[in-house]
């Protein structure tokens, strides 16, 4: 069973937030804070969602807030390696075309 977790690291000039587990109301606030903190620097931010097996609307809200925050500052914000369960929810909420989505971090760097 995958533990819920999110951690930020530097990756070739961008801040990479790696999320894993099931994102729901019980800890989506932590994800929200982590993303907003990552956006505090001026560097581009990528959120790696490859290990996310579930996400609910509170998790999606954290991503949307990060995206809006970055856009307000002219900062780059992208989702990378989005897992199938996350894509399904983004599609359902019609947000799949709102976020810049890349298959890998390296693609996001180009």
């Amino acid at each position: 069973m995958s533990e819920n977790d999110c951690a930020t690291s530097d990756h070739q000039g961008l801040r990479l937030v790696k999320v894993r587990g099931e994102v729901d109301l019980s800890w989506s606030q932590r994800l929200r804070k982590t993303i907003l903190e990552a956006l505090a620097s001026a560097r581009p931010v990528a959120v790696d969602l490859s290990a996310v097996t579930y996400i609910d609307s509170s998790g999606i809200a954290a991503l949307v807030e990060g995206f809006q925050n970055a856009r307000g500052k002219g900062q780059r914000f992208a989702l990378v390696a989005v897992s199938r369960p996350v894509i399904a929810v983004l599609e359902l909420a019609r947000l799949d075309r709102v976020f810049p989505i890349f298959p890998t971090v390296d693609e996001a760097l180009k």
Partner: peptide, 10 residues
């Protein structure tokens, strides 16, 4: 596009 109120849509 705003963060909240998505639940009932889903």
């Amino acid at each position: 596009c705003r963060p909240g109120g998505l639940g009932i849509n889903l």
